[in-house]
């Protein structure tokens, strides 16, 4: 499923951001940091193209009213 980064508008593949690419020393799944990131916001996951996009969002969440504001 494709999500749209609310900050830069690029498409983010939700599945790719969650796909296991490795495993930690004690069994947690690892993902590829190049495949976007996400934030639990207002009770749901919002997907971002990069950490930079997420940082911009966090600085002004009220600028994205469709995501539920601050």
């Amino acid at each position: 499923m494709k999500a749209t980064c609310p900050v830069c508008g690029k498409a983010v593949d939700e599945a790719a951001a969650r796909t296991k690419t490795g495993e930690t020393a004690h069994g947690a799944q690892e993902v590829d940091p190049a495949k976007g990131t996400r934030q639990f916001h207002g009770g749901r996951w919002v997907y971002f193209d990069t950490l930079g996009c997420r940082t911009k969002f966090m600085a002004r969440p009220d600028a994205y009213p469709s995501l539920g504001g601050a």
Binding site: K20, T24, A28, Q29, E30, V31, P33, T37, L51
Partner: peptide
């Protein structure tokens, strides 16, 4: 929480 609990995901930051 044990690290190998299903649903727990680690994303590296450098």
């Amino acid at each position: 929480v044990p690290m190998d609990t299903p649903g727990l995901t680690v994303r590296p930051l450098w």
